[in-house]
Simulated scan of single mutants.
Amino acid sequence: MKSHRLTSGLAIALTILFTLSAVPALAVEVKEKTCDAIQKAIYQLPPEGGEVSLLPGTYSCSAPIIMDRHNVTLRGTGPATLLRLADKANAPVIIMGMAEGIPSRTTRYIKVRDLMIDGNRANQLSECMGGPCSMEFPLRNNGISIRRCEDCAVQSVTVFGAMSGGLVTELGCRRLNIRDYTSFDNEFDGLAGYETEDSTFTGIHLYGNKAAGISTDIKFNNNKFYDVTISNNGTVGIFMRDSLDNAFTNMHIRDNIQHGVFLAQVNTDAATGATGNTFTSVVISQSGGVGFLANDASCVNNMLVGAQFVNNRHGCIGEAASGLVENIGAICR
């Protein structure tokens, strides 16, 4: 009995510690309509973190908002709060994590919620911050870049018009929670993931992006997607390489210029095929190419469960070798 009480007490103490580390301690309201004012508010928060709240209106961003401190929340009032990248700023709008080329440490418990982001693509000059994309200038001008962030969240956010991607996760992200995210009219993908694991994406709506709706690459493993709509994108609905054991549930993919779902490997490297991914309750329709294409023989152990394929121009399922896609209960019409 004594041992049980000690164990229970330890569990309570750990719960309290986690709660204190994950919940903002202070709220600060930003009234000046600039992202510089938002940045100053973030850096003025106490060491334990806090919340920066934004009023309705348009905040002009001449430089990115960098959220590189633990336990910080940026909260707007919904669609009435707009962060707009200034003309020729050539920058991401929000960076969750460190802005250096390769982040030297992990950032935890960062949240962005209840706002809209306008990347103002028509008035930018380059895809990368500082100049042409290179090792010197690796930061893409995304709406939101999440970089080596753990237990971080984006909720009820819309991103449009970014010079690169809408929202991009990269460089060692873990346990992200992306919920009620909409993205359209970006130069590349609505949502892209690299070196990201054990994360959840729920209520995702991606349309009218010039490249893919979703693009995953470079160790994008063990992630879950629920309730996803992808439509009218310039290339494919979903592009996947080097992506292992991800699950997609309740998804509609329609009217994309090329394929609905495209699985591949990186160049000639057979060790980087998209493998072990599961697609459940999926409707793929009106694709310009194949509904679901496993492009390389390395893309093994992928599964479709309860899929509907409707009016895809070049057929329902394409495979580089027979038996790549396990198909249970699919209807092709």
Rank of each mutant, 00 (worst) to 15 (best):
A211V: 11
A271M: 09
L74I: 14
P46F: 06
E32V: 15
N250L: 04
N141S: 12
E319W: 04
K219Y: 14
M1G: 14
C316Y: 14
M96N: 09
G78T: 10
K88F: 13
A162C: 11
K111A: 14
L82R: 15
L85F: 02
L74C: 11
G193I: 06
I204E: 04
R121N: 05
T272C: 04
I284T: 08
G165A: 08
I38G: 12
V112Q: 04
A321R: 15
G234H: 02
L263P: 03
E32M: 05
F279G: 04
V236P: 02
C152P: 07
D198E: 10
S104I: 04
G289D: 09
L45G: 06
H259D: 14
A63E: 11
T58N: 11
Y207P: 00
E319R: 09
N312Q: 11
A247F: 11
A264G: 13
V159L: 00
M251P: 01
T81G: 05
E29H: 08
E170M: 03
N123E: 06
G190W: 07
I42Y: 09
P103V: 08
G97Y: 04
L14K: 11
C173T: 13
E127I: 01
G101H: 02
L244H: 08
A192P: 01
D87V: 07
I218R: 14
S156D: 13
E197D: 04
N267W: 09
R121C: 03
A13P: 05
V72T: 13
C316D: 03
S287Y: 03
M163P: 11
A297T: 12
S215R: 14
T272R: 12
V282Y: 06
E195S: 05
A80F: 06
A37I: 05
V325A: 02
E150N: 02
D217S: 13
I66A: 05
A25P: 03
V28T: 15
D296W: 01
R75N: 10
L74K: 12
R147S: 00
G165L: 04
D269A: 09
P92M: 07
I284P: 01
T196G: 04
L82C: 08
F279M: 00
L167K: 12
R113E: 08
I230D: 06
G234D: 13
D255W: 07
S298H: 00
A247D: 04
T235N: 07
E195R: 05
E100D: 14
A307Y: 12
T107I: 13
Y109E: 05
A321Q: 15
